[in-house]
Design a protein around this nucleic acid. Sequence first.
DNA 1: AATATAATGTTATATTGTTACATACTCAAG
DNA 2: CTTGAGTATGTAACAATATAACATTATATT
Lengths: 147, 147
Amino acid sequence: MTKKEIQKLIRTLETYCGDKGLRYTPPRRITLEVIAASKRPIGAYDVIEEMGKVTDKPKPTTVYRAIEFLQEHGFIHKIESLSAFVACHAGHNHEGSQFIVCNDCGTVEEVHLCHLPKDLQKKVDNTGFKMAHWNTEIHGTCQQCQA
Amino acid sequence: MTKKEIQKLIRTLETYCGDKGLRYTPPRRITLEVIAASKRPIGAYDVIEEMGKVTDKPKPTTVYRAIEFLQEHGFIHKIESLSAFVACHAGHNHEGSQFIVCNDCGTVEEVHLCHLPKDLQKKVDNTGFKMAHWNTEIHGTCQQCQA
DNA sequence: AATATAATGTTATATTGTTACATACTCAAG
DNA sequence: CTTGAGTATGTAACAATATAACATTATATT
Ligand SMILES: [Zn+2]
Ligand SMILES: [Zn+2]
Ligand SMILES: [Zn+2]
Ligand SMILES: [Zn+2]
């Protein structure tokens, strides 16, 4: 994300917290800034490192708590297959996420769909399952890396 | 899986290795047996524990190597959001996996589709991305656990 | 000020996964 | 046979990721 986009995202976080009676705190702000500023998914311990540049180097707990908060409220997503985090690019909270991950350069693109693909939704319905969240990670090689 | 199904799966592994000039070895066999016998996704260190009941307790490397082999050849899948493994229920190697995961009881059902859902495939095609593998994990509450 | 709630600080530890190097097995060429 | 190449395992140490438990601080409400 560009610096402007990050600034906007941070203001969104601040507003969101105000509206919901949640606290807009340094760990939460900095964690989001760091994740949003990263070109690729960033691991929790790299967030700790980055955060250490602007505050006392935080303990894992601090960052993991901020990550949990930001995930719950839809500001970031975890790329499970990489144990790493990215800022949400959809601009709103959503139940499902899709990512395209390049195995060569590591870049990740969020592909936002508002609904689970029909063929999957059908299968889920047939089992009487009550869906809460879903996530798809598509691995392969991006156009750039094919050249 | 039932004991019969496991036995069949193991024979499939043996045949597969023979056909491909790969080795059918105790770590590979036991790892598959243990994962297939588990009612829920099983973590690598629990596989180590189980394997320890029938051989000298193995080191992590042994089990991780077997897991890697079994994954590469389509016998097992990793549930990324749980860092745990399940035996494949599709009966053949496939590029994409879908799982329905109950957050309450932990049971996982594999939903096999041979192709990526169309809306996702379109998005991928538009980016010029060359897909290798994909994985979807759907979390929620199974019918039993809703009662 | 007293209280309740939300959030953070701190320490230690648990869980998951990898690196590096030595040893053994299998098959085939000489 | 035996030697060499490729495949797989054995072993020890370690790295990376994540959580538990308990103390303290901040914020808002009474
Ligand atoms: Zn998103
Ligand atoms: Zn790439
Ligand atoms: Zn499968
Ligand atoms: Zn359930």
